[in-house]
Computed example of a mutant assay.
Amino acid sequence: MPTGPFINAAAIIGGAVAGATLGGKLPERVRANLPTLFGLLSVGLAFITIPKVANYAPVSLAAVIGTALGEWIGIENGFAKLAAAARTFADKLIPAKDGMPAETFIENYVSLVILFGFSGMGIFGAMHEGMTGEPSILYIKAILDVFTAAIFAISLGVMVAFIAVPQMLVQCTLFFLASLVIPLATPEMRADFAACGGLIMLATGLRIMGIKPFPVANMLPALVLVMPLSHFWTVYIA
């Protein structure tokens, strides 16, 4: 049962409702500084998962090849085009919040859909729970998302709560797909998968904090490559 995706969705809904109703009372300095803290928490989670690596060489190889593949495919550019297309469609469905231009509202809203539904932590967390039954990563994401949703709902309104629907669909799909891998995965493969996800969460945290704009979306193919590479490394090299 995919516990993490449901908890994560509930966090977004709760945060959005709280932000839309009570967010105006939150000091501006708190709104400005919380995202930096979220990035730091993502970095801290990476430091927990990376040291559990079984073989760092295949993890490194997966990260390099996966990122190169993502750059070649243009995953982040694809997200940008998707956002532009969705903005045009959403402009016909979602009215602008009072005091905010419609174009700004749609742009922020679509960007938030991508942030919640297709983040490296969410994708890795759903796959990790599907393979191990451990939802802790999505629990941590839920803690971050409840505050993020609240902050954005101050300006975008309760419509932020509806983002929980596509996010839950994405995470549940990844959960069930990853569960099919369990009979084929060794403990070493799972450890290397977790370490690879840790690298992506580290990149995500540094990007949120504005330290380095890593192409996090382009790094996601590494999660597909790392387990086969880990198996090959363990059987034929290590």
Rank of each mutant, 00 (worst) to 15 (best):
P228N: 05
L169Y: 04
L199V: 11
P2Q: 10
S136D: 10
E188P: 00
P221V: 05
M168E: 08
P5K: 10
I114V: 15
A54R: 04
V165N: 03
M219W: 06
V170F: 04
F175D: 02
A90Y: 03
K81T: 14
A9I: 01
A63I: 14
H128A: 08
K97E: 09
L184F: 15
A191V: 06
A11N: 02
I123R: 02
T36A: 15
D192M: 01
M1A: 10
A149P: 08
V59A: 04
K81V: 11
E188N: 14
T3D: 01
P187A: 07
G15P: 07
G133Q: 09
V30A: 15
N77C: 01
W72P: 01
A10F: 07
N8K: 10
R31N: 06
L45H: 02
A63F: 10
A178E: 03
T49F: 10
G23T: 03
A68N: 03
S119F: 00
C172G: 00
V64S: 14
P166A: 01
Y236E: 05
M227L: 15
M201R: 05
C172E: 02
M121H: 06
F105D: 00
V226R: 01
A203D: 03
L112E: 02
G4W: 06
K97A: 12
L199Y: 07
N218D: 10
Y56W: 15
W233M: 04
F162I: 13
E28K: 11
I208C: 01
R29I: 14
I200N: 00
A194H: 06
A238F: 06
V53Y: 03
A96K: 07
Y139M: 09
N55E: 12
E103Y: 05
G66I: 04
E28Q: 14
L115C: 12
L177Y: 10
A191D: 14
K92R: 15
S60T: 01
G74R: 11
A164L: 10
K97L: 01
T21I: 02
F193E: 00
W233N: 04
G210L: 13
I50C: 07
L69V: 15
K97Y: 00
F214W: 13
K81M: 12
C196D: 08
M201H: 08
I123W: 05
A222W: 01
R31F: 07
L93H: 14
T148N: 09
T132V: 06
F6C: 03
A84Y: 00
R31C: 12
F214D: 00
V181I: 13
V64K: 13
F124I: 12
T186C: 09
S179H: 12
G122N: 04
V64Y: 07
G74T: 12
E188I: 09
G197R: 01
K141I: 06
